[in-house]
Design a protein around this nucleic acid. Structure first.
Lengths: 218, 218
DNA sequence: CCTACCGATCGGTAGG
DNA sequence: CCTACCGATCGGTAGG
């Protein structure tokens, strides 16, 4: 028996890689996810690459096989969060024609994502200024894009008379502040599921926007 | 007349110190304010003491006359924000007996403070993990304290039947997320005053909580 | 309150 | 994917 023995080693990549011959992309994603979690919890600058590497069961230099800089990791993490938001909007549009229902679905969907990804989305709280211009600029663009899309959704609901007329910009700032904050306090150990939080928050938002005395005429 | 001449110099301390014989405390406060603004906008670790010093028209070592460490500055800034929150609650309790009205007043008062302090309050977004335990612990205690006080206010409004029954914890997380986010986007150049934002947000919140008890948990 | 400077951390690289 | 190490930044101090 003269072949190189495959010795039992402590789990590398935190068991996030299923197959023995792990693919590059899978590893890269596990890296970004792990980093996003850490960045979200402790902040970008309070998290060293060494800590991330350790959580994945490798050494720091190994990370550089999958990523060029620490900034790139943050950029990637934020991009994933924005993609999820876009996905949630798309799903909401596909599922209903009614502006109000679309808004509701978006909120529920997005909160579901935010809570299911174990805190990865808290990286949205990390200031863009932690990134150099070449990364910060596209991120800012995506922030504007998301903002615009949501304002349009709100405006549509206003036009349909489903919610009280007002400044869509302020409305979006209101409920996105509440929603994005979830990633900062949510823990899967808690008594509430993401779905429950989503339904409750959507209720708060829609009731709040529907307006009190000066309700829209139907 | 053998006293040292007071020569005309370029404005130091960014003109935040009115009197010629500037007091220690005034300077210290100007320092914390300026730092809070910077920390809130760019983040704690993205802001060097050198930048803060420059904004105040002095050199970095000069700051150490007023403060022991950079951490102490962040701690102080957060403390000021929490004090303001406590103040807003106190004012709300003094101004009304009605639980719902107290909640409304708190929201309006607090948003007014947040928007009047030119972004100093955005430091609340800075993770506590940027601080060593001796500072982080008391901050966490104040977070819990504020949370408890607000939950009690919400519970009182529920007991009075002014808002739908539900989980006060979730309710507070909802509207405080929205409110604390304001410091991150508000700018005095905008078309809206802090008062207007406060009234609008308070309306959203109260209507939202009053609404159909989707989240009512019997 | 300033000039000069130290010390630690940490992102990133060399070389295997 | 690892060991060893470099370089820059930056908080903090000495000494005046």
């Amino acid at each position: 028996m003269n072949r190189t023995a495959s010795v039992k080693k402590p789990a590398r990549w935190a068991d996030a890689v299923p197959a023995r011959e792990a693919q590059f992309e899978t590893k890269r994603r596990a890296l970004v996810r792990e980093a996003a979690r850490a960045f979200g919890r402790r902040g970008f600058h309070n998290t060293s690459l060494e800590e991330i590497a350790e959580a994945l069961g490798v050494t720091k230099p190994a990370l550089y096989r999958y990523v060029r800089t620490k900034h790139e990791i943050l950029y990637e993490a934020k991009t994933i969060a924005f993609d999820a938001g876009a996905e949630a909007r798309k799903a909401a549009f596909a599922a209903s024609e009614d502006p109000l229902e679309r808004l509701r679905l978006y909120i529920v969907n997005y909160i579901d994502l935010v809570t299911s990804e174990l805190g990865s989305y808290a990286v949205l709280a990390e200031p863009v200024t932690s990134l150099p211009p070449e990364y910060a600029d596209p991120i800012r663009a995506r922030m504007r894009e998301a903002d615009r899309a949501l304002r349009d959704m709100v405006q549509a609901a206003m036009d349909a008379g489903s919610i009280a007329p007002g400044d869509p910009k302020l409305v979006v700032a209101f409920f996105m502040g509440a929603i994005n904050h979830i990633a900062r306090w949510y823990t899967p150990d808690g008594p509430l599921t993401g779905r429950e939080i989503g339904e409750t928050f959507a209720g708060f938002v829609l009731n709040g926007l529907r307006g009190a005395g000066r309700a829209a005429e139907t």
